[in-house]
Design a protein around this nucleic acid. Sequence first.
DNA 1: TATGAATGAGTTTTCATTCAT
DNA 2: CATGAATGAAAACTCATTCAT
Lengths: 204, 204, 204, 204
Amino acid sequence: MPKPDVSDQRKAQILAAARDVFGRRPYEAVTMREIIAQSGLSTGAVYWYFPSKEAILTALLEDMAAANLAMLERLQQEPGPVVARLRAFFDHMASQAQAVSSLYLTGAKYRAMLSTDPDTHAVMERIGAAYRAGLQALIEEGIARGEFRPFAPAAVTTALLALYEGIMLLWVAAPTTVPLQESLQTAAQFVLAALTGNEGVSEG
Amino acid sequence: MPKPDVSDQRKAQILAAARDVFGRRPYEAVTMREIIAQSGLSTGAVYWYFPSKEAILTALLEDMAAANLAMLERLQQEPGPVVARLRAFFDHMASQAQAVSSLYLTGAKYRAMLSTDPDTHAVMERIGAAYRAGLQALIEEGIARGEFRPFAPAAVTTALLALYEGIMLLWVAAPTTVPLQESLQTAAQFVLAALTGNEGVSEG
Amino acid sequence: MPKPDVSDQRKAQILAAARDVFGRRPYEAVTMREIIAQSGLSTGAVYWYFPSKEAILTALLEDMAAANLAMLERLQQEPGPVVARLRAFFDHMASQAQAVSSLYLTGAKYRAMLSTDPDTHAVMERIGAAYRAGLQALIEEGIARGEFRPFAPAAVTTALLALYEGIMLLWVAAPTTVPLQESLQTAAQFVLAALTGNEGVSEG
Amino acid sequence: MPKPDVSDQRKAQILAAARDVFGRRPYEAVTMREIIAQSGLSTGAVYWYFPSKEAILTALLEDMAAANLAMLERLQQEPGPVVARLRAFFDHMASQAQAVSSLYLTGAKYRAMLSTDPDTHAVMERIGAAYRAGLQALIEEGIARGEFRPFAPAAVTTALLALYEGIMLLWVAAPTTVPLQESLQTAAQFVLAALTGNEGVSEG
DNA sequence: TATGAATGAGTTTTCATTCAT
DNA sequence: CATGAATGAAAACTCATTCAT
C-alpha cells in the first residue's frame, strides 16, 4: 500500500488558489507570487507540480471542462429525443457559465486559446476536440433519428461551438450589453429551430 | 500660410506600421520599438500622436472596422430582399476575414475586447454597437417584410455576432481544424435557415 | 519712444504661472507643459524668455526674495534701536512665510539651493549674500551701539540665517509638528536673548 | 540545519554601496545600476531586500542616524552638568558632519525630508522625533537643574534642530561661504549663551 | 517674436523561473 | 519533496528642449 499520495491534494490546492486569483484579475495582472501565497505552498513546491504559470492556467481550464465533458458523454448514452438532450446540455452550460466562470476566467481562457505555447495549444485543442466530438455525435444521432434536417454535422458542430464561445466572448467584452443567460438560451432555441425546422422549441 | 497639416498622414503612417507588426506577432510580443522603427518616425513623434501601444491597436481596429461598417450601412439603404443583403454581408466579412486579418490581428482584437483600459473598452463597445445596430436593423426589416420568422431581433443579432466572433475565435485558436471560409459560409446558411425556416439557401 | 516692451509683461505672466504650478506640486512633478498651459503662451514663447525650467524657478525665487531684501535695506537706513528693526524683520519674514510660500515652493527653493547648475547656484548665492550682508550690517550696528554683546557678526549672521532656513525646512518636512509662526517667533526671541543677554525681549 | 541568514549581510552590503554612490553624486544622478554594480549583487537581489531606490536611501539615512541617536541617549543617562553634555553632543555632530557626510549625502537627506513618499516620510519623521525627544529631555533637565533659563523646551528644541539643519543646508548650498565646523561651534556657543544667559562658554 | 511638432536618450522596476541546499 | 533567495532580461514611456517655419 503506497503511502497516500500527497500530489493530488497539492495540485488541487494550487488549482483552487489559481481559480481564485485568475477569477479576480486579468491573466497578465496575476503574479505567481499571488498564486503561491494563496496556495499556502512555497515557490518551489508550486513549481514542483506545475512548470509554469501558463501550465497552471491550462490545468485549471482542463479541470473546469472535465465536468462539462463528462455530462456530454453521459448524454450520449441516454435514450430519448436528441433535442431534449441537447437542450439539457445547453441549459447546463448556461447555468454553469454564470455560476463558475468569472469575466476574468473566461478572458483567461481566450488567452489560453490564443497562446503560442505548444503545450497550452495542445491541451486547448484537446478540450475543444472533446466538445466537438460529443456534440457532433449527438447531432449525427439526431439526423439519423430524423429529428434534425440533414445539415453537415461537422459544420453544425462548429456553428454550435462558435455560438457558445462567441456569446461568452461578447459577454466578457460587454457584460452589461449582453445578458448571458438569456443570450445563451435564445441561441439554443435558434439553433434548434434551424436544426429541426420548427420555429421554436415546442416544449409541451 | 499655415504649414500643411501632417497629422493625418502621420497617423496613417503609424497605423500602417502597426498593422504590419501586429499582423506578424502576438500583441504582447510586439514592442513599441518595432512599431516605431517600422513607422520611420521617432519615439516622441509616435507618442505625440498616440498615447500608448494599446491606443495604437485600438485606433487600428477602429480603422479596420470602418470599411465593414460602411458597407453595412450601405446595405441598409438598398432595396430588395433582406436575405440577399445579409448574405452579401456575410460573404464580404468572410472574404475580408481571410484577406485582411491575420491570426495575430484577430487575436489582438480579442485582447482589445478583453482589455481593462476604459478607453479601449469604450472604442470596442462603440464598434460592437455599430455592428449590432446595422445588423439588427436588417433583421427587423426582414421580419417586417415577412422574410424572417418573428424571432426577437436583439437576440438574433447577438447570435449572429456571436457566431461570427466565435468562428473567428475558433479559427484563431485552431486554424487547421476550423476552415475559415467554409465555416463562415455554412454558418450563414445555418442562420438563414433558422430565420427563414427553409432548409438553407437553395443556391442552385 | 520705443514701442512698449512686451517682455516684462510676458515674463511676469510666465512667473505667475510658475508660482502657481510650483506651489501645487513638487518641483520634479511639475512639467513645462503645465507651466506653459497655465501661462497661456506657446512652448516657444516661454523658451524665448527663459532658457529652462530651472531658470524659471530661479527667476521666481529671485522675484520673491526681492521684496524681503528691499525691506532689509530700508531697515538699515532707519534710526532707532537695532533690536526693534531686527524684530520687525523677523515678523515680516514670519508673516510672509506662511502667506506667500507654500510647502512646495519652499521645497523647490531647497532644490534650487542644492542644484548643481552653476547659474542657479550663482543666483541663489547672490540672494543668500544679500540677506547676509543686510543682516550683518544690522548686527554690526547693534554691537557698535552697545545693544548687542560682541559676538562675531559673521557667525551670528550665519546662525540667524540658519535658524530661519532650518525652521522652514523642518516645517516643510513636518508641517504639523513644527508650527511655523510660533517657531519663528520663539527663535527670534531666543536670538535676541542671546544677543542682548536679556532673558527675553523687554518690550515695554 | 537552516542555512545561515545572510539578510543582514546583504542589506549591509547594499547600504555600503549606496553610501558610497550617494556620496559621490546628487540623488537624481545616482542610478540603480551603479548601486547594484557597486554592491556586487544582481538587480533582483537588491530589489529583494529593498523595494526602491528611495527605500535604499531612507534605510541608509536611518542607519546613519542610529549612531547619533545612540549617543544622544547615552548622554541622557550621564550625570553632571547638562551644558557639558550638550556641548559634547554638538561637538560630536560637528565632527561627524564633516567626516561622514558628504555634500551629496546631506543633499540627499533633504530630498528625503521633502519626499512625498509616505514611507520615506514616516521614517524621516521618526528620526526627527527621536532627535527631538532626546534633545528636549536634555533641555528640560538643564532647566530643572537651574542651568538654563526657563525657555519653552519644545521651542528651544526646534530652534536647536533648526540651527543644525540650517547650517548644514547653508553649507551644502555654499560650502565655501559657510565654514562648517566653525559655524556649528559658534552656533553652539550662541545657543548656550542664550540658554544660560552667559556671554558664551568660558572655555579657558 | 511666436509656433508646436519632433526628438530620443535614459531609467526604474517587475516577475517568471531556477537551483543550491 | 520542499525551500526561498537569487537571477537579469526586457520594455513602455516621459519630458525638457530644439528648430524649421
